[in-house]
């Protein structure tokens, strides 16, 4: 683990250009669901916040945002670091969060309860940033939908049991729903609410619409 010193260390070394690189990665991730993005920026947040999560937070959060942290991430070091570098407010209410940072997801219940927006304002929803170990899970999803030419294979590690059903339910809410941003140590990927997931079974694609 990297020593992180105090809350004032480890942010963007170039506020303007690093943020642009971070955003470009996020924009590509959401417009090309399931593709892995590797923004080459060096940041050193306090553990258990991963560098990639920190890049997302530094890129998108500021005094106008409200962030929810799960039990693992919600340490005073993380809160102080986020407060110093972004000025974001922290909430304990899932419903109020524009962004949520989750590390350990034991069950799909952990992913539930966030804001899905309203039918009039579906944009008033939570973007969930989910820390994962990597993108080489044996369980592969076949993704389709906007942003995907034909199909994309996506294999985030450590997803809870029943994730495809959770996602199908989220998709059924459209235009409401949450969007997911997956962060590993050095890569990120996203599932916007429009993406359809099919589990790959025994080499055959099972697609349902």
């Amino acid at each position: 683990m990297l020593a992180t010193g105090t809350a004032v260390d480890g942010g963007f070394s170039n506020q303007v250009l690093d943020a642009q690189i971070g955003f470009a990665a996020l924009m590509n991730a959401l417009s090309r669901p399931g593709t892995l993005q590797s923004p080459g920026i060096h940041v050193v947040p306090p553990s258990p916040l991963s560098a990639m999560t920190a890049i997302v937070a530094l890129t998108l959060c500021d005094a106008d945002t409200v962030v929810w942290l799960d039990e693992t991430v919600n340490t005073s070091a993380v809160r102080d670091w986020l407060a110093f570098h972004t000025g974001t407010a922290i909430t304990a209410e899932k419903e109020l969060a524009q962004f949520a940072i989750l590390d350990a997801v034991r069950s799909v219940a952990d992913l539930q309860g966030f804001a899905a927006g309203s039918q009039e304002y579906p944009d008033r929803s939570t973007s969930i940033i989910l820390q994962v170990a990597g993108f080489s899970s044996a369980q592969k999803f076949q993704l389709s939908g906007p942003g995907i030419k034909e199909v994309v294979s996506f294999a985030p590690e450590g997803l809870p049991e029943g994730f495809p059903d959770f996602w199908a339910a989220n998709r059924a809410l459209f235009p409401r729903g949450v969007d997911l941003i997956f962060t590993s140590k050095d890569q990120l990927a996203a599932l916007p609410r429009t993406t359809r997931i099919d589990e790959k079974l025994g080499g055959h694609d099972v697609r349902s619409r």
């Binding site: 955003f23 005094a63 106008d64 944009d123 906007p146 459209f174």
Partner: peptide
């Protein structure tokens, strides 16, 4: 850089990501 201050850019960037997630909205 690019005229806008960083806070404004972040606000617009958040809107762009939502726009991509909800095509046409």
């Amino acid at each position: 850089f690019a005229y806008l201050d960083e806070q404004t850019k972040r606000m617009i960037r958040r809107a762009i990501l939502k726009a991509i997630a909800i095509p046409g909205y």
